[in-house]
Nucleic acid binder design. Structure first.
Length: 904
RNA sequence: GGGCGCGUAGCUCAGCGGUAGAGCACUGUGUUGACAUCGCAGUGGUCACAGGUUCGAUCCCUGUCGCGCCCACCA
C-alpha cells in the first residue's frame, strides 16, 4: 500500500543508489554498442564551491537532455568534473589561514601553501559533486575529472608549448590589468567597470620659460601625475595650437614634459589638454609610444607610491623642496597619496578647480579593488588567428547558438579580440612550463631537461635556469575541457567517439570566458568544433532582476528548496520557467506548486493501485477498443509529441507545460474520473482493458516526465514494476515513448462531448446557485442521432460527474429551465425551485452580451470587402462558422430567456 | 558611446498576424473512497504609449517613456 504523499527526502537517496547500482549513467554501456553518441561536458564548477541556483538551472537542463537522449537509445556521455579556479580557491585558502591565525601564504612558502590548498581541495572538493548528485544529475561519475589532474595538466602543458612553438604564445612587456590585492595580472574579461562618483581635478602645469603662463589639464587621478611624461592636445584645437612642441614643467616634480599633438586628445573632454602618464593608463601608453614619451612607473605592486629607489622617476630632476616633499610620500597607498598630492597642489595654488565627476572605474571581478594598469612582463596568447577560425566555424554553421541571437554577442567580441594575458602571479594553478636563463631569456618546453637543452644550444654551455613561477589563467585549462577530459593529448577511443560533443549548455555570462575560448582551442588542436550546438540559458536572478551573488546577500539556496520540496519540484520549476531569451526570477510559490504536482501524480498512481490497474504484459495500445481509452491514448500521443518536440527545440517550458497539462488536466481530471464507473463496476473485458490502459498511461507519464522529475518517476516505475512482471531496467534506461497511429477523431468527438457537457452543467449549476449537493434532472432536447446513440454509454458517468438525478430525452425544454448549448445541442435543467432565476437570467444576459459583441466583431470583418478578398479562405470560413455558431447560441439563449419570463 | 533584451491578470511568467493563457494569490463552494500538497466554479487584462505596415496588430516596423543587462571609456 502506497503512502498518501510522495516523500522526496525518503526516496531520493534510495533512487540515486539504484541508478548507481545499475550503472545507468555510464557512457559506453554494453547495451549501447553501436548507438549514436550524445555528449555534454559539464561546465566545471569551482572545486571548492557549492551549488547555487545558476548551477541548479544549468545542470537541470543538461540532465533533462541527457536523460531524454539516454531513453532515446543514445550512448550518452555527460562528462563531469570540477575546476581548480585559481584566484577564487587561492583566496579562500588564504582567508582560512588568516581566520585561524596561521602563517600567511608567503610565510608558508609555495610548496607548503600548495600542500594546504590540495588538502582543502580534498576536504571540500566533494561538496559540489554531492550536491549535483542530490539534484539528480546523471553524469558518468566514474569519469570525473579535475582541471589539475595529471592528465589535464599534461594537456595544458602541451597546449602551451605547442602554441609557443607556433608563435602564438609570446612574452611581452606592456601594461596589464593589475590587481593590487592579489598582486597578479588579470585578463580584460576579469575587469568590471564600476560607476564611481569621483572628482575631476584641474591642475595648472606651468609652461617652460614663460612666467605666469600655464596649461591646465583635468584628471581623475591626480596621484599618477608623478609619472606624467607629456601633455597631449588635439592637432585641430585652436586653443593650444601654439603650445605644441613646447614644454611644460610638471608641478611638484619639476620634470620637463613635452606638449604633443595627438588625435587621442578630445577637445570636448576636460580642458582639451590631457596629461599623459604612459605607465599608468592604457591610452596614455599608446600616446606615449607614438610620441616617444618616457614610461615612468611610480607605483609598486600593491598600488603604493614607489619613488625611492626608482631611478626612472628621479632621472634628470633638479633637487627641490617640492621634490623632497614628494619623495617623502614614498610607500603611501594610492588613495592616501592622492589626498596628499591634491593638498600640496592646493597649497601651491595651482589647483584651478575640482568638479564632481562620475566615471567608470575598473575593478577586479574577484577582488573588487580598483585595477591598476601596470607595466610588467607577461605571457600572451595571440588569439586573433584562432578567433578567425572560431568565427568562420559559426558562420559555416558547424556550431549553432540557441537562441541564435547569441551569435551576435559572440561575433562582436571575437571581432574585437585582444591578446589574451594568460600568466597569473599566483601559486594555485598550472605552473607555466618556461625556464629563464640568467639574462631573463625564456625557454619553453614540456620538461626542464628540454628547456635545459634549448639553453645549452643557445649558450653553447649549461647555464643556470630558473622556472617561471607564474601559473596560467584558470580559463586556459577550461578552454581545453571538451577534449582534455576525453584523454587528449592521447588519442583515446573516447576522444574519437565523443568529440565533438553534441551540445554545450551554459549561461551567457561565460560566452567570452569559456565558450569562445573552447571554440578557439578545440578548432586549433582537434580541427573540429568542440560542440555542435551551444544552448544559452537564462540567468537566475533575484526579484529585482539582479544577479544573485553572495556579496549582495540575495541568494536562494537550491538545496534548501530541495530539502523542502524535493529535487523534482525544483527541477520542474526551473524547466517550466526556462523559456528562451528571458531571465528567471524564481518564486518559491512556483516550486510549491510543482511539489503539489508531484503529489498529484503520486496519488494518481495510488488510485491505480487501489483499482487493480496492473500492467499487462504485451499490452498494445493500438488494439484498445474502448472509446474512453482510445481518447486517452489520443491525448497521450499529442502530449508526447509536444514533449519530444519541446525538448528537441530546447523549449523546456513548452515540454514541461505539455507534460503538466496532460498529466493533471487530462489524465487525472478527466480520464480517471470518466473511467471510475468502469473501474468500480462489474468485472469484464471493458474493466480489464481500462485497468490495463490506466497502468499503461501511468507508465507513459512516468517515462515522459522522467527527464524532468527523475526521482518520483523512477520510484513509481519501481512500484508499478513490482505489480506485474519484474522490469528489466530502471526507468532511466527505458525507451522513450514514441506513440504513433493512436489518434482517434471519433473518440475525441465522443469524449469531447461528454467533457463539454459535464463542464457546462457544472458551470451553470454553480452560477445559478444550485446547491452543490442537489441532484437535478437533465433533459437533452431533441438530440442528434449520434448523441442518442452515445447516451447509454455515458449516462451514468454524466449523472455522477454533473450530479444529476437523471438524464432523459425530450422534444422541448421545459417552460422554466436552465439551458446549456454544447457542441450545438441543447440540454436543459428544469428549475423546480432549485435554481435562482435572477441569477440564471443574469448568466444568460452576460453570455449573450459577450456573444453579441463577438458577432459584431465578426460582422465588421465579414462586411469588409478587403478582408474577404485578401484574407486566406480558411480564415474567412472560420469566421463564418464562428458567426453561425454564435448566432445559433444567441437564438437559443433568447428562447431560454423568454421561457424564464414565466418562472417565479 | 556601441549592442542586446524586457514592459501581457494583484504577483511570477508563457504566448502570438485572425476567439488573450498558466501557476500563485483572490472569491464562492465541496470532504461522493486517489489526492484539501485536493475537487468544482468564478473574479481579474485598452497586452507601456504614439505613429506606421496590413483586409486585420498584443504580435511586424519606427519613435517615445520606463526597466534590466553586456561591451567600450579612469580628462
Amino acid at each position: 500500500m502506497m503512502d498518501k504523499t510522495f516523500d522526496p527526502a525518503a526516496v531520493e537517496s534510495r533512487i540515486a543508489a539504484r541508478w548507481e547500482e545499475a550503472e545507468a549513467f555510464k557512457a559506453g554501456r554494453p547495451d549501447r554498442h553501436g548507438a549514436a553518441p550524445y555528449t555534454i561536458v559539464i561546465p566545471p564548477p569551482n572545486v571548492t564551491g557549492s551549488l547555487h541556483m545558476g548551477h541548479a538551472l544549468n545542470n537541470t537542463v543538461q540532465d533533462i537532455l541527457c536523460r531524454f537522449e539516454r531513453m532515446r537509445g543514445k550512448d550518452v556521455l555527460w562528462q563531469p568534473g570540477t575546476d581548480h579556479a585559481g584566484i577564487a580557491t587561492q583566496m579562500v585558502v588564504e582567508r582560512k589561514l588568516a581566520e585561524t591565525q596561521q602563517p600567511d601564504r608567503r610565510t608558508l612558502g609555495r610548496e607548503e601553501f600548495l600542500r594546504r590548498v590540495w588538502a582543502w581541495k580534498e576536504e571540500s572538493g566533494g561538496t559540489i559533486v554531492n550536491q549535483l548528485k542530490r539534484l539528480g544529475a546523471s553524469c558518468d561519475w566514474s569519469r570525473e575529472r579535475f582541471t589539475m589532474d595529471e592528465g589535464l595538466s599534461k594537456a595544458v602543458l602541451k597546449v602551451f608549448v605547442d602554441l609557443h612553438s607556433q608563435g602564438l604564445i609570446y612574452r611581452d612587456k606592456r601594461l596589464v590589468n593589475w590587481d593590487p590585492r592579489f598582486q597578479t595580472a588579470i585578463s580584460d574579461l576579469e575587469v568590471l567597470q564600476v560607476e564611481v562618483k569621483g572628482h575631476l581635478w584641474h591642475i595648472r602645469y606651468p609652461l617652460e620659460g614663460e612666467a605666469d603662463r600655464f596649461i591646465t589639464v583635468a584628471t581623475t587621478r591626480p596621484e599618477t601625475m608623478l609619472g606624467d611624461t607629456g601633455i597631449a592636445v588635439h592637432p585641430e584645437d585652436e586653443r593650444y595650437k601654439d603650445l605644441v612642441g613646447k614644454f611644460a614643467i610638471l608641478p611638484l616634480v619639476g620634470r620637463r614634459i613635452p606638449i604633443v599633438a595627438d588625435e587621442y586628445s578630445d577637445p570636448e573632454k576636460g580642458t582639451g589638454a590631457v596629461k599623459i602618464t604612459p605607465a599608468h593608463d592604457f591610452n596614455d601608453f599608446e600616446v606615449g609610444r607614438r610620441h616617444g614619451l618616457k614610461v615612468i612607473n611610480v607605483l609598486g605592486p600593491e598600488a603604493q607610491l614607489a619613488l625611492g629607489a626608482n631611478a626612472a622617476f628621479t632621472d634628470g630632476l633638479q633637487p627641490s623642496a617640492d621634490l623632497d616633499a614628494v619623495l617623502a610620500l614614498d610607500g603611501l597607498d594610492r588613495a592616501e597619496a592622492r589626498k596628499r598630492i591634491v593638498a600640496m597642489l592646493e597649497e601651491r595654488g595651482i589647483l584651478e578647480k575640482i568638479e564632481p565627476h562620475t566615471h567608470a572605474v575598473p575593478h577586479g571581478d574577484r577582488s573588487n579593488v580598483v585595477i591598476e594598469p601596470y607595466l610588467t612582463d607577461q605571457w600572451y596568447v595571440d588569439v586573433k588567428p584562432l578567433a578567425e577560425r572560431a568565427m568562420a566555424a559559426v558562420r559555416a554553421g558547424e556550431t549553432r547558438f540557441v537562441p541564435e541571437s547569441w551569435e551576435k554577442t559572440y561575433f562582436q567580441w571575437m571581432e574585437n579580440i585582444e591578446p589574451w594575458c594568460v600568466s597569473r602571479q599566483l601559486w594555485w594553478g598550472h605552473q607555466i612550463p618556461a625556464w629563464f636563463d640568467p639574462e631573463g631569456q625564456p625557454f619553453v618546453a614540456l620538461t626542464e631537461e628540454e628547456a635545459r637543452a634549448q639553453a645549452r644550444e643557445k649558450h653553447g654551455r649549461d647555464v643556470e635556469l630558473r622556472r617561471d613561477e607564474d601559473v596560467l589563467d584558470t580559463w586556459f585549462s577550461s578552454a581545453l575541457w571538451p577534449f582534455s577530459t576525453l584523454g587528449w593529448p592521447d588519442e583515446t577511443p573516447e576522444l574519437g567517439k565523443y568529440y565533438p560533443t553534441t551540445v554545450l549548455v551554459t549561461a551567457f555570462d561565460i560566452i567570452f570566458f569559456w565558450v569562445a575560448r573552447m571554440m578557439m582551442m578545440g578548432l586549433h588542436f582537434r580541427d573540429e568544433v568542440p560542440f555542435k550546438e551551444v544552448y544559452i540559458h537564462a540567468l537566475v536572478r533575484d526579484e529585482k532582476g539582479a544577479k544573485m551573488s553572495k556579496s549582495k546577500g540575495n541568494v536562494m539556496d537550491p538545496l534548501d528548496l530541495v530539502d523542502q520540496y524535493g529535487a523534482d519540484a525544483l527541477r520542474f520549476t526551473l524547466a517550466a520557467m526556462a523559456a528562451q531569451g528571458r531571465d528567471i526570477k524564481l518564486s518559491v510559490a512556483r516550486v510549491e506548486g510543482y511539489r503539489n504536482f508531484a503529489t498529484k501524480i503520486w496519488n494518481a498512481a495510488r488510485f491505480a493501485e487501489m483499482n487493480g490497474c496492473a500492467r499487462v504484459p504485451g499490452f498494445d495500445p493500438a488494439k484498445v477498443q474502448g472509446t474512453l481509452n482510445r481518447w486517452a491514448l489520443t491525448e497521450a500521443a499529442t502530449a508526447s509529441e509536444a514533449i519530444t518536440q519541446g525538448i528537441l527545440a530546447y523549449k523546456f517550458n513548452e515540454a514541461a507545460g505539455a507534460a503538466y497539462r496532460f498529466t493533471w488536466n487530462v489524465f487525472c481530471d478527466w480520464y480517471l474520473e470518466l473511467a471510475k464507473p468502469v473501474l468500480q463496476g462489474e468485472d469484464g473485458p471493458a474493466k480489464d482493458e481500462t485497468r490495463a490502459t490506466v497502468a499503461y498511461l501511468l507508465d507513459l507519464i512516468c517515462a515522459l516526465l522522467h527527464p524532468f522529475m527523475p526521482f518520483l518517476t523512477e520510484e513509481l516505475w519501481a512500484i508499478k514494476g513490482a505489480e506485474g512482471e519484474p522490469r528489466a531496467n530502471v526507468l532511466a534506461l527505458s525507451p522513450w515513448p514514441e506513440l504513433s497511429g493512436l489518434k482517434d477523431a471519433a473518440a475525441e468527438a465522443e469524449i469531447g462531448w461528454v467533457v463539454d457537457l459535464v463542464s457546462e452543467i457544472r458551470s451553470v449549476r454553480s452560477e445559478t446557485n444550485v446547491p452543490a449537493g442537489a441532484q437535478v434532472p437533465l433533459i437533452l432536447v431533441s438530440p442528434s442521432p449520434q448523441v442518442t446513440e452515445r447516451l447509454p454509454r455515458w449516462i451514468d458517468t454524466i449523472r455522477r460527474m454533473a450530479r444529476l438525478s437523471g438524464v432523459t430525452i425530450g422534444d422541448a425544454a421545459p417552460k422554466a429551465s436552465i439551458q446549456v448549448i454544447v457542441r450545438g445541442e441543447v440540454a436543459a435543467v428544469p428549475l423546480e425551485g432549485v435554481i435562482d432565476v435572477a441569477a440564471e437570467r443574469a448568466r444568460l444576459d452576460k453570455e449573450k452580451t459577450k456573444a453579441l459583441g463577438d458577432v459584431a466583431k465578426i460582422d465588421a470583418k465579414l462586411g469588409n470587402a478587403d478582408f474577404l478578398a485578401r484574407a486566406p479562405e480558411e480564415v474567412v470560413d472560420e469566421q463564418r462558422e464562428r458567426r453561425d455558431d454564435l448566432t445559433a447560441r444567441i437564438a437559443k439563449m433568447d428562447e431560454a430567456l423568454t421561457r424564464l419570463q414565466g418562472a417565479q
